[in-house]
Design a protein around this nucleic acid. Structure first.
Lengths: 193, 193
DNA sequence: AGTAACTTATACACTCGTGTTCGAGATAGT
DNA sequence: ACTATCTCGAACACGAGTGTATAAGTTACT
């Protein structure tokens, strides 16, 4: 089994398997938050013992998956240019984040059953700030209404993002309609009266 | 143990205990969807054996709790007068339902881990219709925008309701601010452009 | 080609939650 | 006051999931 190594480089097949396990776990968790270690190993095409070789416990696996998913999302979102007119910047943000946020949210359902609320909040903070900053700027510039708490507006943003993703997932809203609907509703919530 | 009785009336302490168990279960599930039978019995101040006397299985308990909660909610909401100006009717609906819907939603999280999706959808339908009808009428009368699917507007309604309840629950939004914030945002989403 | 790293199936120990059984004791209803 | 009904703790059987140990086999790197 691959032990924790100090300076040694891990073997190629080991890292490949480790990644494969995380991929499989993510996919499984998306529609079954309670997938167990045996199922994950099977889905990754790997022995259960091997899985435990890479992750000492279920919690450790969850944590690693959670962290990797966030890192990937951050990487995507960091590229975004959110300058310029706040309302159109908002559109860009929604367009490129609603899918990511949805996958993340469903993973969260699985993670919430295992990890500490602290560990979760700790991670949820970074992506949240991106939205908060944009909203704050929009308020200052008069593009967004400012008669409500920023925290509430942020909450609305996420709520509508999730709602949209859920509607698409369950087939009540078509892929191509979704984006404009989400944008329109979020814009309506944020628009000055 | 209280067995299934044909014609016999149940003893007073038995029904009292049964209700107490459901009350305790509801309260527990609100912040721990995985509360087990032992915890529920303890919270109800009743022996575990007694609990199984009233509900043959965990699933049966869930089902009974789910059903009772829905019945109570329906009872509350049925009183509502939703006629007149759609926008103010909407306000009345939000005002008297956001708490109920929140409790229901969190119970749902617990129930989803056990019951069949069919059983769930079956119940979720009635309350949903009340919202859908109001929105449909509002669109016809020109009070609400009609350039989006009704289903999407319904989804937004619930999403913002939940978001508001969650903000209050986690202390980021004060009780008294909440209602007006929720109403304002839902109104903004539904308002004609 | 040689060796350390890695994988594997089988099998086991352990924990936790569910649901049942038993026998004794308490309580409601008439 | 009588009795069916209800309650209770303790103990047990069971299944499912987690995590470990072993010993033999395979594969990546140099």
């Amino acid at each position: 089994m691959p032990e924790v190594q100090e300076g040694r480089a891990k073997r190629a097949d080991a890292v490949r398997n480790r990644d494969g396990i995380l991929d499989a776990a993510l996919e499984l968790f998306l529609d079954n938050p309670r997938a167990n270690m045996a199922e994950i190993a099977a889905a990754a095409g790997v022995g259960r013992v091997t899985l435990y070789g890479h992750f000492a416990s279920r919690t450790e696996l969850m944590d690693a998956l959670f962290e990797r998913t966030i890192a990937k999302a951050e990487e995507q979102l960091a590229k975004l240019d959110l300058s310029g007119d706040p309302m159109t910047a908002l559109e860009r943000l929604v367009a490129s984040s609603w899918r990511i946020v949805d996958a993340f949210h469903r993973l969260l359902a699985a993670v919430e059953l295992e990890l500490s609320p602290n560990r979760i909040r700790e991670h949820h903070h970074k992506p949240m700030q991106r939205v908060t900053r944009l909203i704050t700027r929009g308020r200052k510039e008069g593009s967004f209404r400012s008669d409500q708490p920023v925290s509430w507006q942020t909450a609305c943003f996420y709520a509508l993002l999730h709602a949209g993703a859920a509607e698409v997932r369950t087939g009540r809203l078509a892929e191509d309609e979704a984006q404009s609907a989400i944008v329109a509703s979020i814009a309506a919530v944020l628009a000055p009266r």
